[in-house]
Design a protein around this nucleic acid. Structure first.
Ligand SMILES: [Mn+2]
Ligand SMILES: [Mn+2]
Ligand SMILES: [Zn+2]
Ligand SMILES: [Zn+2]
Lengths: 147, 147
DNA sequence: TTGTTATTTGCAACTTTGTTGCAAAAGGCG
DNA sequence: CGCCTTTTGCAACAAAGTTGCAAATAACAA
């Protein structure tokens, strides 16, 4: 059933159904947080680095995935939720990076608030990265014994 | 007079007044946009790459500069405006990246709006990068002849 | 099922950026 | 000046990104 979804997705974007592409989309669907190229290389180590690199580039151009900013200079990626096109990414939601587990997740339920720029500036889009402690790490922390 | 400011700044943070550090702060003060390490290497090419790298690290730790996220995976830096300390950066303003000239500037007059996270998430800080067309490029664009 | 063609992949090679150890150079201070 | 600590430059390496090209493979139609 998930395999069907993946094939459908690739066909929608006029992409050939290759093993690598299917596996990469599989990773994005399984993982509940944004994935970097190095992450992908570890998870799918039977594919060449360059192939994964080009797969990400293709998916990015088509609007299948979007960039997720990170404070380490490492670019992460996540599946686009709505229907983004080659020319415009429509997902203006908040990204949350946990300082404990280092995972970054898309918070689809919280959208980027409207920003009023000074005169003379034209708004195109925005990326908002919130740092803090995630639900899971919060729970762990609360349950740990007092020092 | 600017030289005095620079010396003062370094002394405030208990740092030795070296040529490299003074030049790096000079670059940050002159430039009206965020600067990456490669930018710095071009502007101050008589210093070793590693020295510039370590200077940025030192300034970042002390709270003299702050990171400016970029959508290319390249980290940029800018002077801290308020008084940031080693342990907390207090500049929660919007960063604006122009898609024409590729410059990123700090917009100190616009602060990052408050974000309400879902239950279980703890907020620490946030980075907001707005992309669009800057004041200068906007003017150029408007004055160019119609196609 | 097989052949044809355009696309995709893997490999090699290279560039750029980030990072560390160590000895020489330079800053702060009496 | 002279001492001591910090900073710098060099060498060397690690990690990430990028390109060209030939071999492999997906799509499609005979
Ligand atoms: Mn997202
Ligand atoms: Mn700033
Ligand atoms: Zn976490
Ligand atoms: Zn501009």
């Amino acid at each position: 059933m998930t395999a069907d979804n993946i094939n459908m997705l690739l066909k929608t974007f006029n992409l050939r159904l290759t093993e690598c592409r299917k596996d990469v989309i599989g990773v994005f669907m399984e993982q509940h947080h944004a994935v970097s190229q190095p992450d992908l290389e570890l998870l799918l180590n039977h594919y060449d680095r360059v192939t994964l690199y080009r797969t990400l580039t293709t998916f990015l151009n088509k609007g299948i995935i979007h960039k997720v900013l990170d404070d380490t200079g490492l670019t992460k990626y996540a599946l686009c939720s709505g229907h983004c096109t080659e020319h415009h990414h429509a997902d203006e939601h908040v990204h949350f990076k946990c300082v404990k587990c280092e995972n970054t997740i898309c918070i689809d339920t919280v959208s980027v608030p409207a920003i009023t720029l000074p005169d003379g500036f034209t708004y195109l889009d925005a990326s908002l990265l919130v740092r803090g402690i995630c639900k899971i790490c919060q729970t762990k922390y609360n349950h740990s014994p007092a020092i």
